[in-house]
Nucleic acid binder design. Sequence first.
RNA 1: GCUCCCUUCGUCUAGAGGCCUAGGACACGGCCCUCUCAAGGCCGGUACAUGGGUUCGAAUCCCAUAGGGAGCGCCA
Length: 465
Amino acid sequence: MTVRTRFAPSPTGFLHIGGLRTALFCWLYARRHSGVFVLRIEDTDLERSTPEAIQQILDGMEWAGLDFEEGPFFQTKRFDRYREVIEELLANGKAYRCYCTKEELEQMRAAQIARGEKPRYDGRWRERSDTPAGLPSVVRFKNPLTGEIAVDDVVHGRVVFQNSELDDLIIARSDGTPTYNFCVVVDDMDMQISHVIRGDDHLNNTPRQMNMLLALGQKPPVYAHLPMILGADGAKLSKRHGAVSVLEYRDQGFLPEALLNYLARLGWSHGDQEFFSIEEMIKLFDIADVNKSASAFDGGKLAWLNQQHMMRAPADRVVPVLRWHLDREGIAAANEAQLEQIVVAQRERAKTVLEMAANSAFFFRAPAAYDEKAVRKNITAEVPSLLAETARRLNQLADWAAPAIHALISDVAQEKSVPLGKLAQPIRLAVSGGTVSPPIDATLAILGKSETLSRLTRALTAWGA
RNA sequence: GCUCCCUUCGUCUAGAGGCCUAGGACACGGCCCUCUCAAGGCCGGUACAUGGGUUCGAAUCCCAUAGGGAGCGCCA
């Protein structure tokens, strides 16, 4: 049997971190077993579904690299099929028409709640065969009255529900459109989904879905209900608590593989290992190793992992991302080799590529001003002559590379009997405008000879040489 | 209210009866390294929700309690 998993978001909002984690686990499981990953858009809620949300989901999946073999399928395009199955159930006596009005149902619920009971449909039309003319009706599934139904969940273990707790849910509205729980059942059946991996907020829906599947003569798939992801404060993820589009993470400078690595570790682990490449995740991931309890989102750890991925990836992996972020800041960086050098020099001093771009802007733009406080502290009376001497010698340096530059600066410092920092910091200030940059030799090597000299000259003018 | 689920450091987790005076990671504090900032190295503190069992022995098994979450729609 080939493994077939599906990710089935409803396009009523953006794809957020919780959805992406679900998609990731489905994807990993399919990849691990050389199976098929299906994308299905559950857009039966015509009121709230939007084309923008669909596009967002597609873009998010693409950015994350979660590719699918089949789909995207749209439930709104399958209404004929749903109707067909509803007719079949009706014909078999496995579903029936209910002519209750919404008001009648509301009254029923209110009375049940008042009595301390669980609100549910009482089955008053279940055995009636009369068909009141001219009245609208819904179709309800005839759920078994007795016995129990057990979900053998891969992450939660065996969860048993009494059929008496379940009521006859509506599968077709009075306007004839099918409802969510029913569409899921038909889709999972038609798409031959072998493993349903989804959030554990669906665990309570599962027995109903299984009963419908059984009524249709199907063998239920394997179920795995994933624990929820909570906001950093431990509260439910909501728009107020960090539920942002996954594309927001791209914009903030996170590498998709780092986000995926972080998400995989929320609820799943492999011993003490924290860093996983995509390939390792595919090789090691198993739903059976997933935790049962919800976890809180920790942006700090995501940032750490992101840096780890930046440091371990080949520089040319980060270059296009850096270029994209520089571009957004209005810097067109064309020199591939230079960008690679920047990545290597900056990746250990930035948590995100966005931060790396910000820290590296000075390579492309001469400082408009010098940090005043730093000037007061570092540009003492003897500094201009020191800098002038350094500039003179740099001008004569033929081999413009970090080792030679380092040797030259050390020599000057030694000859003038000043500590290296006394010289390096003013140079840093002159070329970057601030006090933070990669080691001074690497900084100048990347900047290039003519740019370095011109910035030193400008600084000397500014500092009264 | 009813049904179902969950509960190890602040956070993510290891742990499947003795290897646990509970391990790792992030964060935090200290030290080292050092031209800045980092990265890196070393050190440090903090956790088995509570109460009962079972057992020679329990973080691990059982039962209660407490706390948290989900579902109970002609929403998905």
